[in-house]
Design a protein around this nucleic acid. Structure first.
Length: 682
DNA sequence: GAGCACTGC
């Protein structure tokens, strides 16, 4: 393995003595970078980490922000020889942006060109050189995809799963699979980087069962017992303040807290966590309308994903002298964005969270208390530049009693269809017996299997069907959308379904402008089709191409240019995947009926009928409404299918299309022809 | 009459 010591022979101290000569074997970086590296808290654990990785199959590293674990540990491993002999050190991240920035940073520290010894892979972008790349950063989703080609991930010697405490869908699947791989590849080392609160459960997960431990008590390999190592962070202390009494109106409390900070505290920016766009806009308005002396000198900026790129970038502009920046944000600032200069955090204690109800098969978004882990994460945002303060708009009792230690893993609040397909494509058919880091509810598994069966993705034995099931597994989209693409191919409109699949995979192609709602609606009418939103999207895409993909044209028509660029990119990827599956692009031209039949073949479970002025889902008579953003809003055709349902105060169908009821029986005869009989064949 | 956040060869 390593060139420096073997388990049981040399002690870590000896390695310590040797390491001076091996740092940066591949380059001669500047002195200052090396000095900076040495100042990171993780640096003094270098020997210890290398020793643990050498001797343990899995090492859990608890590292707080600023410990340097993400950038340094892969370098330590590289210096210690884990990338010798063409092997690669992998480090996964939940987000593309972190993959790119961390890879760039590490390449800089090593003094190499990004894409050579240090590379990265994210969707649409592979900056690695086989045989040259030693350290590879990638999203956990990409690593999962790589497993479809190489189930044992043989080219990697060490896989570091970073930010595992976030418990994203793909992180959890990855952890389950990595544990399985280690049974076949005892030489593979895992490093799981996690926040304190999750370390114990991670360790328990990677601890082998008693039976297996006795059987596999091989003296040669590393011990199966996971190691845990804590590395302190570099953040400054944050003083926490709680309310003495619960707030009756948290929005007004937030506003008065901001004004009090501005009034009484030394300079420093303020970051405020609220739940959503509505509350944020309201708070911004309250502050900007407050024309008293108290609010003068405040620069109030909203931050949420629905904002245009330009508006989001305002956040990063330097604060003018004599001004205090107040950023009022959703959860986006909790993990995805780092804001420098923040000294004060105001935390509402709530966020919007997605939950999935497997009984109704509906995902909804509800305002719920955040976890203690999230509250700490939010508070930590105040201590990045100097000691800060966090004002929690709830009582200490609420923190102790109402907030759970950590959030519910995404796996336990999601529709499982995509995860199940991924596992089945890797040959794991016993879904109920899979070693999940957080087992989903049996109802959710059963519901997902039922939907996959109806789509024809799995058969009576719950195995992937051929070719449909295997093809669906190849396409990085929801099974419903993938099925739509395959049906589109059979019906002669692959071009159209791929375009619409790309558009549906992004949040919205329209610019979000609250003030000029009327103009947006008028712009929409220029493309609106009587058949509904899907056909409208085809019109928009065609017109966008005719404009020569012009940003000015987008601006004039209230279309989000950045979104359209993503659509073109996604469409390109889907076209390449389709090509590999033997699907050539073919257009149905003006025949929207075959296109709508193809959509129906993927979305028949989302069929609705107008009954006495309201829509009811065909499957379970759930009352639903057409979302006001749909071109079919107030048009109310008799039969529709929808792409997704959002639950706020009502169930709203987003992206709605008219259908003929006979198409449903064509698409899913076993579901719709004998509705009265028992279709739940699973 | 209305939109938490991520992600995918």
């Amino acid at each position: 393995m390593s060139r420096f010591w073997k388990p049981g022979t040399e002690r870590p101290q000896l390695v310590d003595d040797e390491e001076g000569g091996v740092i940066f074997v591949s380059s001669t970086p500047s002195h200052s970078i090396e000095k900076q590296r040495q100042r990171l808290p993780v640096y003094k654990y270098r020997t210890h980490i290398l020793y643990l990785v050498e001797n343990h199959a899995a090492t859990i590293i608890v590292g707080e922000t600023g410990s340097g674990k993400t950038t340094q540990i892969p370098q330590f491993l590289n210096e210690a020889g884990w990338a010798e002999g063409g092997r690669v050190i992998a480090c996964t991240q939940p987000r593309r942006l972190s993959v790119q920035s961390v890879a760039a940073r590490v390449a800089e520290e090593m003094g190499v060109t990004l894409g050579d010894e240090v590379g990265y892979t994210i969707r649409f972008e592979d900056l690695t050189k086989p045989g040259v790349t030693r350290i590879k950063f990638l999203t956990d989703g990409v690593l999962l995809r790589e497993m479809m080609e190489d189930p044992l991930l043989t080219k990697y010697s060490v896989i570091m799963v970073d930010e595992a405490h976030e418990r994203s869908l793909s992180t959890d699947i990855l952890l389950g699979l990595l544990k399985k791989i280690q049974c076949r590849r005892p030489e593979l080392r895992l490093i799981i980087s996690s926040a304190t609160i999750e370390a114990k459960s991670m360790s328990a997960f990677f601890r082998p069962s008693k039976r297996r431990e006795e059987k596999g008590a091989d003296k040669l390999g590393p011990t199966k017992e996971p190691a845990i190592l804590s590395v302190e962070g570099k953040g400054f202390t944050v003083q926490t303040h709680y309310l003495e009494e619960p707030a009756s109106d948290y929005l007004r409390t937030a506003v008065s807290t901001i004004l009090a900070i501005h009034d009484q505290e030394p300079p420093g920016d303020v970051l405020v966590f609220l739940t959503g766009q509505d509350d944020i806009d309201a708070a911004v308005q309250l502050l900007t309308e407050d024309n008293t002396r108290r609010s003068s000198g405040l620069l109030v900026l909203p931050l949420y994903s629905g904002l245009s790129r330009a508006d989001q970038e305002l956040i990063f502009s330097p604060t003018p002298r004599s001004k205090r920046k107040v950023i009022i944000s959703t959860n986006i600032a909790e993990t995805s964005l780092t804001l420098e200069g923040v000294v004060y955090v105001v935390d509402s204690g709530f966020s919007k969270q997605r939950f999935y109800n497997p009984i109704s098969d509906i995902e909804n978004l509800v305002v719920a208390p955040i976890s203690k882990a999230s509250a700490r994460q939010r508070a930590g945002r105040a201590g990045r530049v100097r000691p800060g303060k966090c004002y929690r708009l709830y009582t200490e009792e609420f923190f102790n009693k109402e907030m759970s230690a950590h959030g519910i893993p995404e796996m336990q609040r999601s529709n499982l269809a995509s995860s199940i397909i991924q596992l089945k494509a890797l040959g794991i058919d016993n879904i109920l017996g899979f070693d999940w880091p957080a087992p989903p509810a049996p109802e959710a598994m059963v519901r997902a299997l039922e939907i996959l069966y109806l789509l024809g993705v799995i058969d009576d034995d719950a195995k992937l069907t051929s070719p449909v099931g295997f093809q669906v597994a190849e396409i990085p989209l929801d099974a419903t959308v993938s099925k739509m693409i395959l049906s589109g191919h059979l019906l002669g409109c692959s071009e159209e379904v791929i375009t619409v699949a790309a558009i549906l995979s992004i949040q919205s192609i329209w610019v979000s402008v609250r003030g000029s709602q009327k103009e947006l609606d008028e712009a929409k009418l220029r493309f609106a089709a009587a058949e509904g939103d899907h056909v409208t999207y085809l019109n928009v895409y065609k017109a966008y191409l005719q404009s020569g993909k012009s940003p000015q044209w987008c601006h004039k028509n209230f279309i989000n240019y950045q979104a359209m660029k993503k659509v073109v990119e996604t469409r390109g990827q889907l076209t390449r995947i389709a090509h590999r599956l033997g699907i050539a692009l073919k257009s149905c031209e003006k025949d929207t009926e075959v296109f709508r039949k193809a959509v129906t073949a993927g979305f028949f479970t989302n069929a609705c009928r107008l009954e006495g002025g309201v829509y009811k889902t065909v499957r379970n008579s759930q009352e639903v409404h057409i979302h006001p953003s749909s071109v079919l809003f107030r048009v109310n055709p008799k039969w529709v299918v929808y792409h997704s349902l959002v639950l706020t105060d009502r169930h709203y169908m987003r992206n709605v299309m008219t259908i003929e009821p006979s198409w449903l029986t064509e698409a899913a005869p076993n579901l719709y022809q004998q509705k009265s009989s028992n279709f739940d064949a699973r």
